[in-house]
Design a protein around this nucleic acid. Structure first.
Lengths: 232, 232
DNA sequence: GCAATTTTTCACCGGTTTTTCACCGCTCGA
DNA sequence: TCGAGCGGTGAAAAACCGGTGAAAAATTGC
């Protein structure tokens, strides 16, 4: 389901320039040409982000900002020809999340949209993998719904593997990030921790599903939950 | 309790211009003059926001962004002389939350800081948790409807725990925020205060419900009033 | 200035974690 | 075929962490 953007601008030229570009990026776009319509559409359309012009008939941009902020935290990017310091400060202090002065570069607008939307995301905190749930926000790991007790080093190593899941992480990389650069040659640590992680996480520790050894390379966290039944 | 900003810039002139202004606004300011120092201070100082220059010795701004984003969602505002479209897009797509081109207007920077910090806030004045009521506005704590007498330090530590309820707070973080960065290694303080808090708040201080120890990690304020009857 | 409270300091205990080391089997390449 | 290097295993030693108690030092209120 694509994200929805409400474009509020009374200049048809601007709208005609922006909306196709947004649609091309995969966003759903709705358009309002004055403040009243903006508030109405905000209710109806429930956008994920609002692109808001300041100078408008019916209700100006600042007023729209304030109204919306009374009930909602939906991100707002103000786009305006007014580039004066006071305008920018006023808009930001009245609830705008970002401010872009016209004329602007399209790719910058798109980047700022991405940045603002990213911020709103509840940082992809949870990773599901077969019967494993890793909640990086609360720093907990669940196996079959039950909490697994991980020590700090165990968790740090697991986090490192998960952060690069699908890619291989070398023992040196793990030591580097978990113990620090000065321990670069003591890759023995990793062996021990990997073992403990496997006994705690793997259904069958001697035939790991999640923490896979890539011989002579490193370890890999197996995200694709497809279980590989190796015929041995 | 003021919010902390980490200023990362290798130009002493810029730093000299910005930091006093930030301090005048009531922010706590730490300064790093290269990327390595920035990452180190990020760990130590745990800032609420980062002002990041792009051009730096040791490790450039984009790299710093990426490193920080691997583990954290702390807001980053990039401040740079580079105003090219590509620079802006690159920075925003690598985790920056906002981008400001030097030279900038100070009041605009401050407004953008406010806008970005506003996002992260979840101000909730009153926290109810079983028979505990914590009113952060009036700075009082009630237990079974009765006022609990907390000393300033006790309250500050509790507030710190409550602010991150459901998340774990390390002893270092607590010391950092309550006593200040210069006490970073005297985590003994925390033990004492936690003990006193438990005797004052917990129905059964030796089996805490509210202030839970997460071994080898830190303490967690248990918001979900569900009492965990551990079988064993 | 004195008494009560609060904060800091310190040493100890029990439990857990981390580190270290020796050994084993396997694979790769000479 | 053999040796070297890599990864897995096991177990003991060392380090660490959090809780406790108690006393010294600092702060506060009267």
């Amino acid at each position: 389901m694509s994200q929805r953007i409400l474009v509020v601008d009374d200049d048809p030229g601007i709208v005609a320039a922006i909306s196709p570009a947004l649609r091309a990026q995969g966003y759903d776009v709705a358009i309002a040409s004055d403040g009243e319509a903006a508030l109405h559409l905000f209710q109806q359309y429930a956008p994920d982000l609002i692109l808001l012009d300041l100078v408008m008939p019916a209700l100006n941009g600042i007023a729209v900002c304030q109204q919306i902020r009374q009930h909602s935290a939906t991100p707002i990017i103000v786009v305006s020809v007014k580039g004066a310091e006071a305008d920018i400060v006023t808009a930001l202090d009245n609830g705008a999340d970002d401010y872009l002065v016209k004329p602007f570069r399209l790719s910058e607008l798109l980047a700022r949209i991405r940045a603002v939307l990213r911020r709103g995301q509840t940082t992809q905190a949870r990773i599901y993998c077969a019967d494993l749930v890793i909640d990086t926000n609360r720093r907990v790991v669940l196996r079959e719904g039950k909490l697994v007790n991980l020590t700090p080093i165990e968790y740090a190593v697991l986090a490192e593997l998960v952060a690069h899941r699908d890619g291989v992480v070398t023992a040196r990389q793990i030591v580097q990030r978990v113990w620090g650069p000065q321990y670069l040659d003591s890759t023995d640590y990793v062996k021990g921790v990997i073992r403990r992680l496997r006994t705690k996480l793997e259904p069958d520790p001697s035939h790991p599903r999640y923490i896979i050894t890539e011989p002579y390379v490193g370890y890999r966290f197996n995200d694709s939950a497809t279980i590989q039944e190796s015929a041995e």
